[in-house]
């Protein structure tokens, strides 16, 4: 029984980490309709910001976290205003924007390596120790916090998208940009705000993942690949859907490799991605507008 509990908990931990990445990615996608893969860099940069503030400059932990989240949000806005928006104004296609976002991902990865070197950095706020026992499975307090926070974000984002004016505007743009503009929604402003919120979410993700997995320059690629897969499974333009999809991905990966050799872990997630793209491209909870024939 302990094994089943441990596998489920492993799946929830992995799923929460993917969900933290997927939430911001999906929020930005839903209003902007292009894949901001550099979102992975935002997460890593947040990890390094926390490392700099807390471990190098010894700023109190919670203040470091606050600074990290705000600065990562600002970084998102800067990327939107100075990279994506100029491209959009030149009528660049979504493919061009996507290539730009991959370019940014690589640029940041290499910049981080130049600044901080390629080695793994440990933030060291949480001591490594054996986790507490839960139904015979082991889980650390940090991992419990990660799972709870992801659940909390799921509810908060659902509420935000459904009941706040900004959330409604975002959904309006997601649904039909031209119509939303006609009724007076400033789509650039909403897009910038979505970049701020989405990237601030990456900030929260970066802090938690940095504490859990340490930080190293190449981690952004790994994270965005899994976050993207989770988002597709859940429904890429529906934020709570992508969070749930990420949980599903984490659980399937971790429970699946109990039965198959562990070398196939990533193969399993990509197989899942393709099954969804073939049979349910809008994802489990995505909005099917019924326009695809």
């Amino acid at each position: 029984m302990a094994v089943v509990a441990q596998l489920i908990i492993n799946g929830l931990i992995a799923g929460s980490i993917y969900a933290l990445v997927a939430a911001g990615f999906s929020l930005i996608f839903s209003t902007n309709k292009f894949m901001h893969f550099a979102h992975g860099s935002s997460v890593v940069i947040a990890g390094y910001l926390l490392f700099t503030f807390f471990s190098l400059w010894h700023i109190p932990f919670y203040l470091s976290c606050l600074l990290t989240v705000v600065l990562t949000g600002v970084l998102g806005v800067v990327l939107h205003r100075f990279v994506y928006l100029p491209l959009e104004k030149k009528n660049a296609s979504t493919v061009v924007l996507l290539i730009a976002s991959i370019g940014l991902l690589m640029l940041f990865q290499n910049l981080l390596q130049i600044i901080f070197s390629a080695s793994v950095k440990t933030i060291g706020y949480v001591q490594v120790a054996q986790g507490v026992s839960l139904f015979g499975a082991s889980i650390t307090p940090l991992q419990i916090a990660i799972i709870l926070l992801s659940f909390f974000l799921l509810i908060l984002l659902y509420w935000f998208m459904k009941y706040t004016a900004l959330g409604r505007n975002m959904r309006a743009i997601a649904d039909n940009k031209e119509l939303a503009e006609i009724i007076g929604i400033d789509h650039i402003k909403v897009a910038s705000l979505s970049f701020f919120i989405g990237s601030a979410l990456a900030g929260i993700a970066g802090i938690l993942i940095g504490l859990e997995q340490n930080v190293y320059p190449t981690m952004g690629t790994m994270l965005i690949v899994k976050g993207f897969t989770g988002a597709v499974i859940g429904g890429i333009d529906f934020v709570p859907g992508s969070i749930l999809g990420s949980y599903l991905l984490g659980l399937i990966e971790n429970i699946g490799i109990w039965f198959i050799p562990s070398g196939y872990k990533d193969a399993l997630s990509f197989a899942l991605l393709f099954i969804f793209l073939l049979f349910r491209p809008q994802g489990l909870f995505g909005i099917n507008k019924g326009v695809r024939k």
Binding site: M35, V95, L98, I102, M106, Q109, T221, L277, R292
Partner: peptide, 23 residues
């Protein structure tokens, strides 16, 4: 949207295969 998704998938596979460009 389907096209976008496919492009996304291709990019993800590309990212997975090679971390960074030839520098």
């Amino acid at each position: 949207k389907k096209l976008l998704l496919m492009i996304g998938v291709i990019s993800v596979l590309f990212l997975f295969g090679c971390d960074t460009a030839n520098t």
